[in-house]
Design a protein around this nucleic acid. Structure first.
Length: 578
RNA sequence: GCGCCCGUAGCUCAGUUGGAUAGAGCACGGACCUUCUAAGUCCGGGGUCGCAGGUUCGAAUCCUGCCGGGCGCGCCA
C-alpha cells in the first residue's frame, strides 16, 4: 500500500463530498493535488497542497479550504491530528498504530512489498546495451547495461509489462572492419606471419585469435588469397556470431538478460529500411536536398552534396537528417528508424532507449522519427548514461582502446564481483559522470554504500537467526511495544518503499533505489548503535520475549524491504559479511 | 557557431517532477567509546542553490538571457 496515494484518494473523496454538499464548486480539477512527506518531519507525516492548488478555481481562501479538509480528515480513524500550516498546507499526523500496521503489510508481502499496479500492465519496450558486436564489453557498456536492467526491473515492479531488448549493430562499416580483422587472424592461424602494422585501422585485440583459429579449422586454406568481397560475408558472419557470444557471456556475468536480440542486418535483408523510408515518403517527409555546412567548424573536406533527407525539423529537430550515405548505403539512422517502426508495429507505444552520452546528438532525430512514424501517438524516452571514470586508490586508471589496454567488463567483475559493479553503477544519477574506484568498491567501511547496505541486511539476518522467529510468529507480534521515535522513524521509512518504486518507475530513475536503501540502512544502523550504549534498546532483550518479538518484526520488515530493493537492483543480499 | 547535459557546504553528491527554515557522506572542531556482527558513536560550525530577470500563493526545480565545465555536430555505429 502506498500510504501517500491512499490519503490522496481520501482527500479527493472529501473534495467530492464537499462539492456534492454545495460547499465547493462542482468539477474542480484535482490533477495537481498531491500528498507528500513534508521535508521537515516536525510538520507531520503527510502534507497536502490541495487548498493552495484549488483556492483560485474554488473562489475561496486557501485556509478556508484547508479548514474544510481538516474537518473531514480529523474523522479518519488513522489520523492523529490534522492542522493548517503556512500558506495553506494541510499537515497530517497519523496514529502510531496505523504505521505499525504497515509492518504487517510488509511481513505479509515479503520481497513482493512495493509491487504496484500503477503501470496498469502497459507494455513498455526498454532497449539497452546495444553494443557493437566488435569485441567484448568494457566498463563503459556496463553502466548502460545496469541502468537499463534495473530500470526494466523497477518498471516491472510498478506494474508495467516490460520487454528488454538488445539491438545488434551488425551492419555497416564497423562489422566489415571486424571481418577483415578476423581474416588476418585466420591467416595467422594458417601459419602466416602477420605484422602488427597490418592491423592499422582494424581491431588488434587478442580476442579475435580464437575466431581465426575456428575459421582455420572449418575452412583450411579455402579463403587464403581470396578477394575482400568474396570472403567478407562468411568472415563477418563468423566474427559477429563469435562477438555476440562474448557479449552474451559478459551480460551473463553481469546478470543481465534480454528477451529479444534484434539484428540490424536482418532489417536490411528483409527490406524494412526501404519500407520505412517509403512510408515516410508517402507522407511527404522525405526529399533530396543539400544541407548547410556545420557552422564554426573548418569545413575542410566538406562539399555541398544533394542527399536523401528526412524532414526531422518538422518534428522538433534542428535540421533535416540524411538517410543515405554518399556511397548509396543507408545511414545508421535510417536502419534505426526501421527498428523503431518494428517496435511500434509490435504494439509498443511506450519505448525507452538507454544510450551512451556520446549519442546525445541523435536524441532529437530519433524522437522526431518516432513522432513521425507513430503520428505522435507513441512516446520514446531516451536516457543518456554519462561516462564512468575508473580509479584505483584515487589514481585514475588509464584506458586506451588503441593499445588494447582498456579494462573489460569481465576484468572488472573478476576484480570486485557482480554485486558491487551493479550497485556502484547506481550510486549516481545516470546523466552525471561516475567515478568508480576499484579499491573503495570492496572496502568494508561506512564510506562504501554497497557494504553499508549489505551490512544492514546481514545484521538484520543475524538477529533473526539468533531469535529463530518464523514469519507466522512475527506476523502476530505485539507491535504496540514499538514506541521509540527511532523505531517509528524506521517504520515510516520502510512504509515509503511503494511510493519510491512508483516514483522511480515514472521518472525512469533507477538510482533512486540505491539511495533509498542507503537511507534505510542508515536508519537501521542508527538504531543498532543505540543498543550498544543501552542494552534496553537492543533488538534482543533478555527477559522480555514480547518486546524481542515486536522488534524482530521490525527487523524482518527492514530485511524484507532491503531484499526487495536489492532484488530490483539485481544484487544478492548477503546473510553475513566475511 | 549551434544543440544536448551539468553547475547545490571546502570535497563528492541527493533533493520525492513547483512546497514550508535546502539535506547526506567525507573533511574540519569538540566530547565519548572498546561492541547483540565485525563500518567506532554522538554533537557542532559551514550556503547569495553559477549570475540576472521572468512566471505564481510558493522556484534549487519551470521560462528567457548571460558566465563556466563536459559531450556532440553530413559520407561512424
Amino acid at each position: 500500500m502506498n500510504v501517500f496515494k491512499l490519503f490522496k484518494e481520501r482527500v479527493r473523496a472529501l473534495l467530492d463530498q464537499a462539492a456534492a454538499a454545495g460547499r465547493l464548486p462542482a468539477g474542480l480539477d484535482h490533477g495537481r493535488v498531491e500528498v507528500e512527506p513534508p521535508r521537515d518531519p516536525t510538520h507531520g507525516d503527510l502534507a497536502c497542497n490541495a487548498a493552495m492548488v484549488l483556492a483560485k478555481a474554488a473562489g475561496q481562501a486557501p485556509r478556508a479550504l484547508a479548514q474544510l479538509l481538516i474537518e473531514g480528515l480529523a474523522l479518519d480513524p488513522a489520523v492523529e491530528s490534522a492542522a493548517i500550516a503556512g500558506p495553506g498546507f494541510v499537515n497530517l499526523r497519523l496514529k502510531d498504530e496505523f504505521w505499525r500496521q504497515r509492518l504487517v503489510d510488509i511481513l505479509a508481502a515479503g520481497i513482493a512489498y512495493g509491487d504496484s499496479d500503477i503501470g496498469a500492465g502497459q507494455r513498455v519496450n526498454v532497449e539497452y546495451v546495444s553494443a557493437n558486436p566488435t569485441g567484448p564489453m568494457h566498463v563503459g557498456h556496463a553502466r548502460g547495461a545496469v541502468v537499463g536492467d534495473v530500470l526494466a526491473a523497477v518498471m516491472e515492479k510498478a506494474g508495467f509489462a516490460v520487454a528488454r531488448e538488445f539491438y545488434i549493430n551488425d551492419a555497416g562499416a564497423q562489422v566489415d572492419t571486424l571481418a577483415e580483422s578476423a581474416y588476418l587472424r585466420y591467416l595467422e592461424a594458417r601459419g602466416e606471419t602477420i605484422p602488427a602494422s597490418a592491423f592499422e585501422g582494424l581491431y588488434p585485440g587478442d580476442y579475435l585469435k580464437p575466431v581465426g583459429a575456428e575459421l582455420a579449422k572449418i575452412y583450411g586454406d579455402e579463403w587464403r588469397g581470396s578477394g575482400r568481397e568474396t570472403r567478407l560475408g562468411p568472415m563477418r558472419e563468423h566474427a559477429v556470431r563469435a562477438m555476440m557470444g562474448l557479449i552474451k557471456a559478459d551480460l551473463e556475468r553481469l546478470g543481465v538478460r534480454h528477451a529479444v536480440f534484434a539484428s540490424e542486418r536482418a532489417l536490411h535483408q528483409a527490406g524494412r529500411v526501404e519500407a520505412v523510408v517509403k512510408r515516410l515518403a508517402d507522407q511527404d517527409l522525405v526529399y533530396t536536398g543539400v544541407l548547410d555546412p556545420p557552422k564554426g567548424k573548418p569545413p575542410e573536406d566538406w562539399e555541398p552534396r544533394p542527399q536523401l533527407l528526412f524532414r526531422a525539423s518538422k518534428f522538433g529537430d534542428d535540421i533535416d537528417r540524411p538517410l543515405k550515405k554518399s556511397d548509396g548505403a543507408w545511414t545508421y539512422f535510417a536502419a534505426d528508424m526501421a527498428y523503431h517502426l518494428d517496435k511500434l508495429e509490435r504494439g509498443f507505444e511506450r519505448m525507452v532507449d538507454i544510450w551512451g552520452a556520446d549519442h546525445a546528438g541523435y536524441v532529437k532525430r530519433m524522437k522526431a522519427a518516432v513522432a513521425a512514424l507513430s503520428g505522435g501517438r507513441a512516446a520514446l524516452e531516451i536516457r543518456l548514461c554519462q561516462m564512468v571514470n575508473l580509479f584505483d586508490r584515487g589514481q585514475p586508471v588509464k584506458m586506451s582502446k588503441r593499445s588494447g589496454s582498456f579494462v573489460t567488463l569481465a576484468d572488472l567483475i573478476e576484480e570486485v564481483g557482480r554485486d558491487v559493479v551493479r550497485f556502484i553503477m547506481l550510486t549516481r544519477k545516470s546523466d552525471a559522470q561516475l567515478d568508480f574506484d576499484f579499491a573503495k568498491a570492496v572496502e568494508q567501511s561506512k564510506d562504501n554504500p554497497v557494504f553499508y547496505v549489505q551490512y544492514a541486511h546481514a545484521r538484520g539476518r543475524s538477529v533473526l537467526r539468533q531469535t529463530g522467529f518464523d514469519r507466522e510468529r512475527l506476523l502476530r507480534a505485539p507491535l504496540g511495544r514499538l514506541t521509540s521515535a527511532e523505531e517509528m522513524a524506521l517504520i515510516r521509512l520502510l512504509a515509503g518503499w511503494p511510493r519510491l518504486v512508483e516514483g522511480a518507475a515514472l521518472a525512469q530513475e533507477p538510482h533512486r533505489v540505491a539511495f533509498y536503501l542507503h537511507d534505510v540502512a542508515g536508519q537501521f544502523h542508527g538504531l543498532w548503535n543505540r543498543g550498544n550504549d543501552d542494552p534496553a534498546q537492543r533488538f534482543i532483550v533478555a527477559g522480555d520475549d514480547e518486546l524481542t518479538l515486536a522488534r524482530g518484526a521490525l527487523v524482518q520488515a527492514m530485511v524484507d524491504v532491503v531484499a526487495s530493493g536489492l532484488a530490483v537492483m539485481g544484487v544478492t543480499p548477503v546473510e553475513e559479511l566475511r
